[in-house]
Each structure stands twice: as C-alpha cells, then as structure tokens.
Write a protein that binds this DNA or RNA. Structure first.
Lengths: 236, 236
DNA sequence: AAGTGGTCTAGACCACTGT
DNA sequence: CAGTGGTCTAGACCACTTC
C-alpha cells in the first residue's frame, strides 16, 4: 500500500513500470544473483499488488533477456557467462561504431556545442582535481558525453539498442574501473572524437571509437581475470 | 470461443501469442496500414477474449516498435519512413557482418555441411529450372541458407536482433524482388561466403557480406524509387 | 490425489477527453 | 459531467509436477 500510494503522489507511474524498474535494478545491481528463482505470485505479494502487472513487468524483462521463464519452475535470473560478455562487447562495437558515423554526419551545430561544453568542463576537472575526487567528478561527465553524443546520431532505434546492451554490462560494474585506469586517455579520445565530428569524418570517428572499445574490452579481461575462460573468437 | 478451443486442440499456445502473431502478421503483411488506430477492447471482442492477453500482445508489439501507444487515443500502427528503412539496412549491415565473422570462426563441421547441402540443391535448381519456377524454388532456399548460416554463428543474441530487423523490412516485400533480379549473383555470393567459412576467414566473409547488403540496399532504392527522398547520410 | 504455477476472465476504478 | 480508454484486482481454471 505504501508503495502504491507513493507512486500515485509522485504521479501516474504504472505499477508494472515500478515493478519492472525495481526488478531490473535488483538484477543488474547484483542483488538477485544469477540462478535465483521466483514466481509471479511471490513478487505480487511482496509488492502487495495483484499478479497481472507483475506478469507484464516480467514479460518485459524476459524480452530483454534478463530472466528466463522456465515452465513449471518459475522465473530464473539469467547469468552472463564470460563468453556472453565478450559477445556483448563485440555487439557494442558494431552498434556504436555505426552510431558515431551517424553522429559525424547528422549532428547539429547545437548538439556539437553541447558536447564541446562537456569536454571543456572535463578539462577543467582534469587540471583542478586529483585522485578520487577527480574520478567522482569525471565519471558522470563521461556518461553525459556518451548520452549527448549518441543522441546526436539522430538514429533513435540504434541508440536504444546501444543503451540496452550497455546496461547489460552494468552488472559487472567495470565501467568505473576502466575509466579510472585510463582517465587521461579517455579524455583525449573524446576530444579527438569531437574533432572528427566537427570535420564530419565518419570513418575516422568510427575507427577511433572501435579502438576505444577494443581497449575497454582488454581492460575488462584484465580486471576480471577471465582471459583464460574466453576463447579468442568470442570478441571480434 | 472457436478460436480458443481451436488453440487448445492445436496444443497449449497461449492466447496472447496467437493475438500477437495475428496482429503482427496483419501489420507486416500490410493489412493494417500505418496510422490505423485500434484499442485493446476492440481486439478483445474481435477475438472474443478478455483484454488482459490482448494487452500483453500489444505490449510486445510496442516493445518491437511496430505500434505506438498514444495516451487516450489507442494504439497506432507505426509506419516506416524511407529514412527509417535506410537506417535499418545500415543496422542490418553492422549486425550481419559481425555475425558472419562469428560463423567463419565458430561454425562446426556439421553446420558447414548443412550449408553445403543447401548450396548443392540451389545449384541443381539453377541448372534445371527457369523463370518463375526457378524463383519459386530458389527464394525459400535462400531463406534456409540464411537461417542455417546465422545460427552457425553461435551468437544467439546477435542472431535474434538480426531476425527482428530483417522482419521489419518484410513490410516492403522487397526481398523477392531483390533476389529475382540478381539470382545468379546471389548464388555466387553465397558460394563464396561458404568458401570463406571453410577457410575460416572472418574478415573476408564480413567484407563480402557487407558488399552484398550494400547492393540489396541499392536495389531497394531503385525498386521503390525512394532515392530522392533519402539523404545520402541515412545509410552508412 | 494434492499442490503449484501459468493463463485468462470479469469487472472495478481512475484519469483524461470533449462537450 | 458523461464517455472512453487504460490499469489493476480477485479469482477461476487448467496443465503439469510431485508424492
């Protein structure tokens, strides 16, 4: 009840959306570990709601591949094998390289200015802050940069796919580690990307971004120590 | 009622699935033209079922981007602008080029044999049939080839995305036209692809397939006459 | 045979529309 | 302030599992 009335004061947010977001957060945040089983009924009584909106939320999660509906056994949180992560990285590379080509060709002057502004702010941080404080300030800025950049592609379907697959990797919370390790390079890469956008050079932008993702993947391999569990043909 | 009992004799196919498939077919088949509006209730009484399964079907269609739920106006069949089609072609190129790299590296001997077998059959048709009869025999064979090929990538998530986006283009029923126009080239391309698979040459396979999709796109442009409505930056 | 999980129905309720 | 559309509830029912 408290949850329901809460939702209504915050304003018309369908219950299924709340359930969906909560469950999703629990899964990608690592609270619900892979293999965990639950039924529609359990969730329903946990939230004190009926099963219909829960079903709808769960169907959405299933469509996204976060859970699996096993006949007569309930819903199972799907895990990502190292091999899956490698393939998702490869997919991200394909999608994001395409998207940045669109950015180089389609971004408006206004959008480019936005990106420029974020870079300027990053530069300020780089010269005035250090250590943890710098990381804390820089990480969200990178998130903003990425968001603005991809949206400037004017290819919404592709951008949706990109966010979807980026979020799948959130489970491994490796983003922060990767950025912290290479903050300087991260900044220089994005400056260079910006200059390719300004000069309307799609191929160069794509190549640079592909390189960037290759490096992120390598760092992920190092950090997680999965190198030996992954075939050399899982990332392309 | 007749529909329900029918479904039950055919064996446990959830009603929402039936509704989903029927609606989807109606949309991609062109029966329901873009802009058509309908409500959950209408569909429910048309099928003589309650609204819950209809809602579930419609949510799935919405997630796929085939319809749009407009507040207080019902569900609207979304149309694809020429620009959207161009971007879907570009997306297909990115996804499929990645997938064929995986095929070249991951396909098992057995899978390669399957593909070989399909090619042999195609060759037979090419030498024994002509005109419409040849097209009728060849088109489904190409579909089988593609299916077997992509599945041999052992990258199920990527393959799902590919089918999803290929189906979006079914609305324009251009596949048959494209194939008929270039049956010979289509066959030779697939033979060449096969040889790259056998020699485990991912980059070559990817490049050839990319070229293949470029050509399909060009033919689509010609056939539909949309060339002038599409910016040169919508396909990359 | 009892129990659990999955699906569908019927209907209530509320928010927003248009007069 | 009636009407329509969208969402949720409660509960029935059936299929499959397990004992």
């Amino acid at each position: 009840m408290s949850l329901l009335s809460n939702a209504k004061t915050i304003k018309i947010k369908p219950v299924r959306e709340i359930v969906y977001e909560q469950l999703r957060q629990a899964i990608v945040g690592g609270e619900l570990e892979p293999g965990t089983r639950f039924t529609d009924g359990e969730i329903a009584s946990e939230f004190n709601i009926s099963r219909t909106p829960v079903r709808e939320a769960i169907q959405k999660l299933e469509a996204e591949g976060l859970i699996e509906r096993v006949p007569m056994r309930g819903n199972v949180v799907k895990g990502l094998l190292p091999k899956d992560v490698a393939q998702i990285f490869a997919l991200r590379k394909a999608l994001e390289c395409l998207a940045v080509k669109y950015v180089a060709m389609n971004a408006t002057e206004k959008e480019l200015k936005n990106v420029r502004h974020i870079l300027d702010q990053a530069k300020t941080y780089m010269t005035t802050l250090q250590g943890e404080a710098l990381t804390d300030a820089y990480v969200p800025l990178v998130a903003r940069y990425n968001k603005e950049m991809f949206e400037a592609s004017h290819a919404p379907k592709i951008v949706d796919l990109i966010w979807n697959h980026r979020e799948m990797l959130d489970r491994y919370r490796v983003v922060r580690v990767v950025i912290a390790k290479r903050m300087d390079e991260s900044y220089r890469t994005r400056e260079q990307m910006y200059s390719y956008f300004v000069s309307r050079s799609p191929e160069e932008a794509s190549a640079l971004w592909g390189n960037h993702i290759d490096k992120s993947y390598k760092i992920w391999l190092e950090v997680t120590g999965y190198s030996d569990q992954i075939g050399k043909h899982d990332y392309m």
